[in-house]
């Protein structure tokens, strides 16, 4: 299988590999996929008080397209509001990386990872707000 230059670039020079403190209230973590399926993505976002994503980190178990998709979305979500980030579509990712049809699921997984990270942040944030109020 031949990979697009962009996939190769992200695979060889992945952006924003790493971990954030999952216990921090500023951090939302999305863990999607399954080892048995050959793809697991973990995307973490750090959200500022203004509701803008300040930083993003990923780690991915998967093929080159899965690594590239998650690397790409860490770049894309930074500087966006949660609403803006949740509008990132798998088709945008697939188009940017020129993924072949057999690799579309990698972009779907990356979209799921963004949504999961946002949802985790919102859950935490909501819970933190409640405890402050009580």
């Amino acid at each position: 299988m031949s990979y697009s230059d962009k996939v190769v670039d992200h695979y060889e020079n992945p952006r924003n590999v790493g971990s954030m403190d999952n216990d921090s209230g500023e951090v939302g973590t999305g863990l999607v996929g399954a080892p048995a399926c050959g793809d697991v993505m973990r995307l973490q976002i750090k959200v500022g008080e203004n509701g803008i994503i300040e930083d993003a980190k990923f780690k991915t178990f998967g093929c080159g397209s899965a690594i590239a998709s998650s690397s790409l979305v860490t770049e894309w979500v930074k500087g966006k509001t949660l609403d803006e980030a949740s509008n990132i579509k798998n088709t945008d990712i697939a188009e940017e990386l020129a993924l072949p049809p057999v690799k579309i699921h990698c972009s779907v997984l990356a979209e799921d990872a963004i949504k999961a990270a946002i949802s985790d942040y919102k859950t935490k944030h909501g819970a933190a707000g409640d405890s402050e109020a009580s």
């Binding site: 990979y3 695979y11 050959g38 178990f61 093929c63 080159g64 899965a66 690594i67």
Partner: peptide, 11 residues
């Protein structure tokens, strides 16, 4: 373990 085969082959 922990490294997907196709991803590895790409490297």
């Amino acid at each position: 373990a922990f490294v997907e085969g196709e991803g590895l082959m790409m490297g």
